[in-house]
């Protein structure tokens, strides 16, 4: 490979949950190398272990077998170096903090000065197009705007890796498509490595460089589909035959679902 670097190396990762003397195999033998700046989707039906894999990468879970390397070091070191930004399915905003204060929260934890926090928050608000809503409270925003705040907060720490767990699945179709375009624009500007969990095939195809298809029982990586659609991608791309063909290809790659 011509000079590309591995940002995330997932090496034969397996995860077995133990609860009440019962063992649930959530993942077996997942291996995947993700390059710096790549946009990767983890696609699969409910219960196939997408969240589990994301949490293992983020050092929120320790795998029961195999290992994950972030830039050659452990997820724990990566976490302590603030290399992760995370966006959840629900916005997970602090309802007693304004939009700006929500974005500043990770910066407060880093003990940045007030001025620097405000400056970074301002940039992030501009990036996600919420400058006018800096002093609003989360409850005063629509679901889509709340999720934008979540993205801005995740990016505020300037992480190298952006982890997103079904961030748009609770939104309506219109808002979601708008956010897809915005996310790609933000990604183009900031050059993060993105690991994006979804169970929506079209979403995965539209956003990603590669779609990793996970199959359940037990969770495993059953296919990796390259999405060689040109960038920048816009809404119109969804109507092209190339897009439709790739969606069909990804759908067909599911094993016995």
């Amino acid at each position: 490979m011509n000079g590309s670097q591995t940002a995330i190396k997932i090496d034969n990762v397996g995860m077995v949950y133990r609860a009440d003397n019962q063992e649930v195999t959530a993942l077996t033998g997942v291996s995947l190398d993700i390059e710096k700046g790549e946009f990767i989707s983890l696609l699969g039906p409910s219960g196939c272990g997408k969240t589990t894999l994301l949490r293992i990468v983020a050092d929120l879970l320790a795998p029961t077998s195999g290992q994950v390397l972030i830039d050659g070091s452990s997820p724990r070191e990566a976490r302590l170096q603030k290399k992760y930004g995370m966006v959840f399915q629900s916005p997970v905003l602090y309802e007693w903090r304004t939009v700006q204060k929500n974005i500043e929260l990770p910066l407060e934890l880093m003990k940045l000065s007030k001025e620097e926090r405000a400056e970074r928050a301002r940039k992030m608000l501009e990036l996600v197009g919420l400058t006018d809503f800096a002093h609003h409270y989360p409850q005063q925003l629509s679901g889509g705007m709340q999720q934008r705040v979540g993205i801005a907060r995740a990016l505020a720490l300037r992480p190298e890796i952006l982890l997103m767990d079904e961030p748009f699945s609770a939104l309506d179709e219109f808002t979601r498509e708008k956010l897809h375009e915005d996310l790609l624009r933000i990604w183009g500007k900031t050059n993060k490595t993105v690991l994006f969990v979804t169970h929506n095939i079209a979403e995965a195809v539209f956003l990603s460089d590669r779609v990793c298809v996970l199959s359940p029982h037990p969770g495993r990586l059953s296919a990796v589909v390259n999405i060689d659609l040109p960038r920048p991608r816009t809404m119109e791309l969804r109507d092209t035959p190339e897009f439709t063909a790739l969606v069909a290809k990804v759908r067909n790659s599911f094993e016995g679902v």
Binding site: L60, R79, M86, F88, P106, L109, M110
Partner: peptide, 25 residues
């Protein structure tokens, strides 16, 4: 919510910060 605690963890917050910024409010 677990996600708020996850967020604190990912930001490498110390225990004091987790209580002061999230749990106590």
């Amino acid at each position: 919510e677990q996600e708020k605690l996850d967020l604190m963890y990912l930001c490498a917050a110390n225990r004091y910060q987790v209580y002061w910024k999230t749990l106590i409010p």
